[in-house]
Design a protein around this nucleic acid. Sequence first.
DNA 1: ATATCGTATTGACATGGATCAAAGCGGCAG
DNA 2: CTGCCGCTTTGATCCATGTCAATACGATAT
Lengths: 261, 261
Amino acid sequence: MDQSGRPAERERETELPNKSVVPVTLASVKLACSQCSLHELCLSEGLSKEELAKLDSLVGARRKLRRQQNLYRAGEPFEALYAVRTGFFKTDILLEDGRDQVTGFQMAGEILGMDGIGTEVHSCNAVALEDSEVCVIPFAQLEQLSREIQALQHNFHKVMSRELVRDQGLMMLLGTMRAEERLAAFLLNMSQRFTSRGYSPAEFHLRMTREEIGSYLGLKLETVSRAFSRFQEEGYIAVQQKHIRLLDAAGLKKLLKHPPR
Amino acid sequence: MDQSGRPAERERETELPNKSVVPVTLASVKLACSQCSLHELCLSEGLSKEELAKLDSLVGARRKLRRQQNLYRAGEPFEALYAVRTGFFKTDILLEDGRDQVTGFQMAGEILGMDGIGTEVHSCNAVALEDSEVCVIPFAQLEQLSREIQALQHNFHKVMSRELVRDQGLMMLLGTMRAEERLAAFLLNMSQRFTSRGYSPAEFHLRMTREEIGSYLGLKLETVSRAFSRFQEEGYIAVQQKHIRLLDAAGLKKLLKHPPR
DNA sequence: ATATCGTATTGACATGGATCAAAGCGGCAG
DNA sequence: CTGCCGCTTTGATCCATGTCAATACGATAT
């Protein structure tokens, strides 16, 4: 059963222990911040060797999640930030009336949980969209260490600020763009993020359903599906279920800059 | 002329010097953080007397802006945060194709400029919607001081986090709500913010135009106007141009929880 | 008082995306 | 291999909001 005590629905969450927090021993340095390939995306950029060592000891635990498992839920007390090591997450909010919205998709090197700092309580749900692993960063200790290490402090502030800017972009998308522009922006964003992680810019596998994409973009799943089909007809992309190939990224960009009217 | 060197259009921006930064002397303590009535909204909550004194010396300048004057513009280098002392601001983003969107309205006690931390460059424009005054908080010094003062550090992190949560709420609004729900949410939010500043919860003056409200809510100005009229017909509010009276806040809340379908 | 200009309201009509419905596809369990 | 179930695609129709246009309002300047 999963940690909420509900019956595990269609997902297989059975094998891992409830909160699979694995303490890191000195023997397992291969997974420490100092060795982490996500350096520049994460908090450790620009830190000296000694400073990195301190950060390593702070990021003292890791947690594995199965597909569909919650990293945290809205309402739970906030204690730590999480850096995605591997895998793929979504965050979403549920309104009382049942409506919900996906507020973001997070991949390796991105930080989850900052929504909880202000109120000590998480304001959204974070769910793994595939088997994933995160670094657990106890927040009180992060604050303490970032009082000692200027670069760490600044990195953290940058991460939060970039998140604010990302949100502004999403508001722009939701407030002013039409369906096809939204999907084009989404695909280009995905491509860019995969690229910066060393994957192919033109070919990738979407981990989320059409419904989740639609929720994120403020559209219905049918509209997303139709836009995919349209893009395929126009020769911008090749779609096969969740597998996407960008055939004409420039075309998609043009769509964004010069909206049909 | 205003600081960009353009002709002042319809607005009167003539009387104040270019960058009206007024140094604060010890004689003018009445305006220092330690005396500021915005305490709990701002960064100074929970600080000791000595700590407050340090913060006072950091927030060493104030800047007055006329209606329609820019506090900063997208693309300008980021140097400082700004705490609104008096007045009312909007932030907005301009896309290459001319479309723009208002991303927020800020009032006394709220912090502007955090969008610039991540890239050292502002990503949006901040414009005074009425004659206003801000405290200038040089960011490098804020980081330095918040390495010394734990409470200041934590307050700052809270402010940023709350901004993230606010953005999530706005995404929800833009992604899932219909026009009347959006406006109801907007009015209730305004009321709540005026209330927490000691103004009447039921009667207030909107500083922005219908077009600006619409831009913020992802609607056209005509739709905003119609929703206002509808609310008036239903007896929820009384509208007279920018002057609003909430006659039935509960009714508006119900509209939010139980959408028409 | 009158003209002007930005803002707001209201009406008539157009349309993009939502809704409802049916069928196709693909992976997994039995 | 077969059947089921979740996901996706596609079609037909509807409706909320956008668009276009006319008028009204209110403040400021003349």
